[in-house]
Amino acid sequence: MQAIISFIKILRHNFYCRWRQLLPQYKVLNSSRSRGRVHQGKIIVLMVRNETTFCGGLSDRFRGITSVYQECKRQGVDFKIHFETPNLIDYLEPNLYDWYIDEKEICYDTKRVYPCTILTYHNQENKHESEVQKRILQWYLKKDYEQIHVYTNMRSGDNEYGTLFNELFRPTKELQGLVEEHVTAMGGEKQYNAMVFRFRQLLGDFKEGGETLPENEREQYIQRCVNVIEKAHETHPEKRLLVTSDSITFLNRVSGLPYVYVIPGEVVHVGFTYDASKKTYMKSFVDYYVLSHAQSVILVRDKKMYHSGFALRAAMLNGAEYKEEWMT
């Protein structure tokens, strides 16, 4: 029954988004530009465009990328990535597989291109969703078009996430330099632990969704989070503790703790911000890689905080231990 429900939800979302969003957009894009270059054989393009927001944040997009790549690799189909804002090639380069495609090679003629979606519904009780996503992707890939454009945050590739990610990507020289700088400052790879706090708009930093605490309740809530950090430090007093968060208010507060390490920079959510500078977006990529080199990564949770996948996939990238800790 759960598998049937997943099929219905994913296909219903695809039907709605194709007819209400993607096909009208493609009609406009196709009329305003020249035809995309013709490739030899079919190509699958993982699409992340500003006008389509259902791919989620950075880690959601990464899991979609690795999942589609996994199936294309299995089938021997050409796989490419078109990732707008931030422009992915500014931060990550092709590593063992050349996924780059020039904008001029993207076709928006729906007689030649099939745009489609595969959504994840974050229902941990539905153990069939991942397999359903894979089956639907296989069905899409059989369609007789020159290009299949897949918009997704699917998670069927999680079983090989780190391997797939590292086949696809290596940091640019600029990003690698920043990552090495911060890892070295904490004693080197696997010499520090990390804690991640995903508040969204709880502390009033920006508009994103979810609850916003009244101002007179924020200090008490922040102190509860600080208590969790202090407890973690007492358990491993010999190690520096990297703290990452989407709240600059919280980061400014905990940066004064002598054993806490905070990576400086402005915080934005890539799924909601399309006009930030390269330097601003860079922080998300630096956080991701520096987390991956920790010995352990702890996602701190309660009923108010968002259950983010950022910490989990950062840990999966380079084999860090991953745990979730509920605040009391």
Rank of each mutant, 00 (worst) to 15 (best):
T212E: 15
K142Q: 15
L213G: 05
K231G: 00
V196H: 10
K207T: 14
T152S: 15
N166F: 09
E160K: 06
R135W: 15
V150I: 15
G162F: 02
G157M: 07
P214Y: 03
Y161I: 06
T212Q: 12
F206V: 09
E215T: 12
E217G: 00
N153L: 08
W139F: 14
E189D: 11
Y140W: 12
K190Y: 02
K134E: 15
R224N: 06
V226I: 15
Y192T: 06
N193V: 08
E208D: 10
V179P: 02
V150L: 11
Y151M: 08
Q220H: 05
R200F: 11
E230V: 10
Q138V: 13
L168Y: 05
I222D: 03
H236M: 14
K207S: 12
F206W: 08
E189V: 13
M154T: 10
K143P: 00
G210A: 07
F165S: 09
C225W: 06
M186T: 02
D144N: 13
F169A: 10
M186G: 02
E189T: 15
L141A: 06
Y145C: 09
H236L: 14
C225K: 06
Q201Y: 00
I229M: 06
R200V: 13
E146A: 11
R155E: 14
Y221D: 04
P214F: 05
I136R: 03
R200Q: 08
Q138T: 12
E160P: 00
N153R: 06
F199N: 03
A194P: 01
Q176I: 09
R155L: 14
K231H: 10
S156E: 12
P171H: 07
P171W: 06
Y161N: 06
F169W: 02
E208R: 01
V228W: 07
G177N: 04
I148M: 04
G188P: 08
N216P: 00
K207F: 14
K143C: 03
G157Y: 07
A232T: 09
E215F: 10
Y151V: 12
R170D: 10
P171N: 05
G177V: 08
E211P: 00
P214R: 09
V179C: 04
N153E: 07
Y221T: 04
V179I: 15
E217T: 10
V228S: 13
E167W: 07
